[in-house]
Design a protein around this nucleic acid. Sequence first.
DNA 1: CCTGAAACACTAAAGGC
DNA 2: GCCTTTAGTGTTTCAGG
Lengths: 150, 150
Amino acid sequence: MRPAAADIDELDIRLVEILQKDSSTPSVKIAGMLRVTEGTVRNRVNKLRRLGVIRRFTISIDPMAMGQGAIAFVLLNAAPGRTAEVAKRLAALDVVAEVHETHTYGDLLLKVRARGPSDLADIVASRIKTVPGVAGTQVITVLNAWKDGA
Amino acid sequence: MRPAAADIDELDIRLVEILQKDSSTPSVKIAGMLRVTEGTVRNRVNKLRRLGVIRRFTISIDPMAMGQGAIAFVLLNAAPGRTAEVAKRLAALDVVAEVHETHTYGDLLLKVRARGPSDLADIVASRIKTVPGVAGTQVITVLNAWKDGA
DNA sequence: CCTGAAACACTAAAGGC
DNA sequence: GCCTTTAGTGTTTCAGG
């Protein structure tokens, strides 16, 4: 059930934008903004949830405050033919926020979150490099996050 | 008003975890899980919002379904002494999801979202390279996102 | 912490494109 | 036929005691 872009119209997009800004906005208020009734808003939200466009209602937190202040990106090489296997295992780690397959500098690009620089070094050494099929790593340490998708 | 990690206790952390999974969970239900009263839950939530630990209530969407299927990372060099200025201007662009300051490959690492590969090329050429102070760019195209913090 | 009032969410059923 | 609306019912939130 992959959601096609055709299934969502202009109203859905505006609805999603409102919910991204503040998902605690009451249905009635959203209804007023979009010039439809409250029932329509909730019907649409249910539809978007069914289609998987809206994955879940959540909160955006400050990583600093939660003791997750350090970020690093890891450029990683996998053993030939084992990229998918390695990607899946890395994705299962909670410290690994993102796993992207690429072909520019290595095979995978990871985003790693940790408490601090020393914690970060430990994670790379003992949890990432130890994954079977990992051939090599290059760490890009983040000094300052100007904009972050937390 | 930078929130110190000392201000949040075990209860806050569990509360945040519940809200990350589903922020539409009613206060009463959360109260039951945490063995506290409903008032306590809402007081805590308000406190965490005030401290900036909880930035906002939002939704997690499927980027594919919203016509944002393409991702690229851009390694960027800024003109000497202009890194902060460039970072701020890039952070203001809606297509730029993340801006990180680094010192490994260039000065900034960006995460860019777009509809497709051609759209991506256009964004880099006409919206990122044109920012004053940008000296050079290296684009890492993502072929497949195994895990993404959308 | 408890209570009551108001706002809000949800269900089912009818109407319009 | 599908989407939207409407009306009625139940739940949650929130202020004052």
